[in-house]
Computed example of a mutant assay.
Amino acid sequence: MLTLTAASVCVAQSPELRFGETVPRDVREMYDRGLRYLSETQAEDGGWEGGQQGPGVDGLCVIAFLASGEDPNFGIYSNQIRKGLRKIIGTQDPTTGYMGNSMYHHGFAMLALAEAYGAVDDRNLWPPGDASTQRSIGEALELAVRLAITSQKKNSLGAWRYSPEAQDADTSVSGSILVGLLAARNSGVEVPDEAIDRAIGYFKSMTANNGQVAYAGGLGGLNESIARISIATLVYSIARRQDLTQYAAAKTYLVDNMDTTGGHYKEYTLYYEAQALFQGDGEAWEKWNKQLIRKLKTEQQENGSFDGSYGKPLATSMSLLALALNYRFLPIYER
């Protein structure tokens, strides 16, 4: 049985007050422009359209708003956050808990619910008269976690792929689900240790001695992918498994090759690489972060968006979230 513990509503405060550090001006300006773009392009139903779309993209956009440190209940983007969360919850199957048409979407949507749980006041989430008939953030999150756990139990590899019924797995989809589960556990949802241990076991089996990480089908599927190496480094870190030799190998490879570009999936790579370096090697992250700021400053469009392989909403939200480590506001972004 998955149970929820009580979570108090958090009132956001300035990152400078929380950490005594000033967020670089370029980051603040880029982030503000990016949020204005996401605000202006949010559909009336709370989602985002253009390229890839669905609850996973909506979730990443919501997380981008949450990561800025603005009060999610009374701040300037509180309406956008509530609309986005309503859209995510509205897409959820009320019986199975599945969100979207892919476990990718489910993982990122679950992460958004976990980061919103305890920060967004459910009393203001739904319009008057609707709250009693709609799921709360916590209820939706519990259902989402249950779906992920049920899917994993059916999977002989102890991980996930595109369908909740899949019998194979890959490190990319599994990373999105595992990060969502770890965020849910941090927020107060009970996630069995066995589920985390099995998933970490899968990542161990996919991490080579030199730190490279395979995509699917075992170590025979190896080729250099900074995105996958970042995902593995990140999940080992936030699962508190820095004792593993696989973690040390992946982190070392990542730091030694942190200037390698993400190729076709650049925004996806930046999103995970930022978090992995921040968690794994603060000094390396500081150096890489300065380069990231310069890079994204030249790539941001006049309207605040970023271009990417799967449309502006996804590219913009992931690019902003790569910068969001400068704010250190989201619980999942804490060391």
Rank of each mutant, 00 (worst) to 15 (best):
L314E: 14
A131M: 03
L17T: 15
L4M: 08
Y37G: 02
Y268I: 08
D307E: 09
V27D: 04
T260H: 11
V145M: 12
T95P: 00
V191S: 05
S151Q: 09
V255R: 11
G280F: 07
E70R: 09
Y77Q: 01
H106L: 09
S205I: 11
A112E: 02
L181Q: 05
V179K: 11
N73V: 08
W288N: 10
G311T: 00
A284N: 02
P127E: 04
D93G: 12
G97Y: 07
L277E: 12
A248K: 15
D307M: 00
L234H: 14
A248F: 04
L17G: 01
R36E: 04
L320F: 08
Y77T: 00
V173P: 00
E194W: 13
A322Y: 01
V23G: 10
N101W: 13
V23N: 09
G20S: 09
Y247L: 04
E302G: 08
F329C: 07
L234W: 14
E16L: 10
Y117L: 06
A183I: 07
V213A: 00
L254A: 09
S163A: 09
A232H: 01
S205L: 13
M30V: 12
V189D: 12
S102M: 06
T233E: 08
V27W: 03
L321S: 08
Q42L: 00
S174I: 07
G304T: 06
D307H: 05
L157T: 03
A249E: 04
E16Q: 12
G220Y: 06
N210F: 02
H105D: 15
T171P: 03
V235N: 01
G138T: 01
Q52D: 15
D197A: 15
F203P: 10
V27I: 14
L277A: 13
T260S: 13
V145N: 01
L85A: 07
G20R: 09
S319D: 06
T252N: 13
T171D: 11
D193M: 04
Q301I: 04
T5D: 15
E194R: 14
G221N: 08
E139K: 14
Q134I: 12
T261C: 13
A148Y: 05
G46V: 11
G282M: 07
D197W: 03
R185S: 08
L66D: 01
P164N: 12
P94A: 11
L38H: 05
A232G: 03
Y98T: 09
L143N: 12
